[in-house]
């Protein structure tokens, strides 16, 4: 293993670490609604939720935005990143989903502007601070990992893995499930993540930003749930 491979691996482990203090654990993205409505209630329904979120929601939305932000980050194309950021904002119809992504994006930026002096990232951060661009998590994640010199397939794997861990951790707490059940669900997502990475790179552009009606509705309903532990 070269020194650079090891450095990039550590960078990816760091940025996709679920304990990174950006607040990933406080967003359920509609899962809390599903659980209160007793639709997600055991191992099988949790697996279905995690799987479907990855296949139908993440892949056509945030996964795709990571892919494109990575490309524009590599090209040092700030204008394209800003346009992509705005598109991501326009596609997120449920307010809590949109706000959650903005919070994660801002916190991720705040960590990395202290760690690296990439000009592109600092320019983007300035635009977010000046409210000239929203600053969504997937855009920030894609841009930073490109600047770190990572490889796109590994970046997407890390991104999807991080999303899966957050969903599983929240399910273990809320459904609730046993720790072992959670680990089994997560471990068995590996093949799916590998497939998703390849799919993301060869996606049919027509499906860009695909709408997931029932997921969106559960996120919107979360705003008025009687009791809420999570921010979305």
């Amino acid at each position: 293993m070269t020194h650079n491979t090891q450095r990039v691996l550590l960078e990816l482990l760091h940025i996709s670490d679920p304990t990174l203090p950006i607040g990933g654990y406080s967003h359920s993205n509609g899962l809390e609604t599903y659980i209160q409505q007793k639709v997600v209630k055991d191992v099988d329904t949790t697996r279905e939720f995690v799987q479907n979120m990855l296949i139908y929601n993440y892949k056509y939305n945030d996964g795709l935005f990571v892919r494109d932000a990575f490309k524009y980050g590599t090209e040092q194309n700030l204008e394209a990143l800003l346009k992509l950021d705005n598109e991501s904002h326009a596609l997120k119809t449920p307010m809590e989903l949109r706000d959650g992504s903005l919070k994660l994006g801002m916190r991720l930026l705040k960590i990395y502007v202290r760690l690296h002096d990439y000009e592109l990232m600092h320019s983007f951060f300035k635009k977010v601070k000046n409210k000239e661009t929203p600053g969504h998590y997937a855009i920030v994640f894609g841009m930073i990992t490109a600047l770190l010199g990572a490889e796109i397939k590994l970046v997407l794997s890390a991104f999807y893995y991080n999303a899966a861990v957050n969903m599983v951790t929240n399910s273990v707490k809320m459904v609730p499930l046993g720790q072992m059940d959670g680990q089994e669900i997560l471990y068995n997502m590996h093949d799916l993540i590998a497939t998703l990475v390849n799919d993301t790179l060869t996606l049919d552009e027509e499906m860009r930003g695909l709408c997931n009606p029932a997921f969106d509705i559960r996120c919107m309903q979360h705003e008025t749930l009687y009791s809420r532990l999570y921010m979305s």
Binding site: Y34, E48, Y56, G209, A214
Partner: peptide, 21 residues
């Protein structure tokens, strides 16, 4: 661009009865 919605349905590619759809 303020709002974008891509209502895209291809029954051969997406199972519509499934959770989230």
């Amino acid at each position: 661009l303020f709002y974008k919605d891509n209502l895209y349905l291809k029954p051969s590619a997406v199972d519509f009865k499934t959770l989230g759809q």
